[in-house]
């Protein structure tokens, strides 16, 4: 009996269908879990503290990240990405001595209570994420917490690194 052989063209190429199946599954997996181009305004140069406990934030889109580090004259330097069109966080001063304005408080109030002029509705669930330098003293954090309290922002989250102390 003559043995039947596969045709030359089929024997030379491997079957790539399982490969495509697996690769497609991997692509869908990565597309679902990765975050590409999401800019929360976090300053990665700030060294945040570690903690052995913590929780994940589900809705980072409803949160404003405040980067806090030691500033001049015993005042904190706070930066945040306030406008969505910005690429870099802008400084939000606690107090502008020349005008007496309080830009940080104004921004927090606007995001919390809304702004009818800009058609921005009130947002009672608005959150703050504090990303502060781990070596910074409490005197730099305190005025920011007071501003949050004055703006009636009740949900304040301290960003930490997972791990041991």
């Amino acid at each position: 009996m003559r043995r039947r052989h596969l045709q030359e063209s089929h024997a030379a190429h491997p079957n790539v269908t399982p490969l495509i199946d697996i690769v497609m599954c991997l692509i869908i997996f990565f597309m679902l879990i990765t975050k590409i181009g999401v800019n929360t305004g976090s300053d990665s140069s700030i060294e945040i503290p570690a903690s052995i406990l913590g929780n994940e934030l589900k809705d980072l889109g409803n949160a404003l990240t405040l980067n806090i580090r030691e500033g001049p004259r015993d005042q904190p330097m706070v930066t945040a990405l306030v406008e969505s069109g910005q690429s870099q966080p802008q400084e939000l001063k606690l107090l502008e001595p020349s005008t007496g304005r309080r830009p940080l408080l104004e921004v927090l109030r606007r995001l919390r209570d809304g702004d009818p002029a800009k058609n921005l509705p009130a947002n009672p669930d608005f959150k703050i994420v504090i990303r502060a330098d781990k070596e910074m003293g409490y005197r730099f954090l305190e005025p920011v917490l007071i501003a949050c309290m004055e703006a009636k922002v009740k949900n304040v989250n301290f960003n930490t690194v997972k791990g041991s102390q």
């Binding site: 990565f30 879990i33 990765t34 975050k35 934030l57 949900n155 304040v156 989250n157 930490t160």
Partner: peptide, 25 residues
């Protein structure tokens, strides 16, 4: 498909190294 896969693996951030201590003032 391989190029897309490698791009997603390299460009994606998983955000798995940080978490939050939540305070309700």
């Amino acid at each position: 498909v391989m190029v897309i896969l490698i791009f997603l693996m390299l460009a994606g951030t998983f955000g798995g190294t940080e978490w939050y201590l939540t305070s309700n003032l």
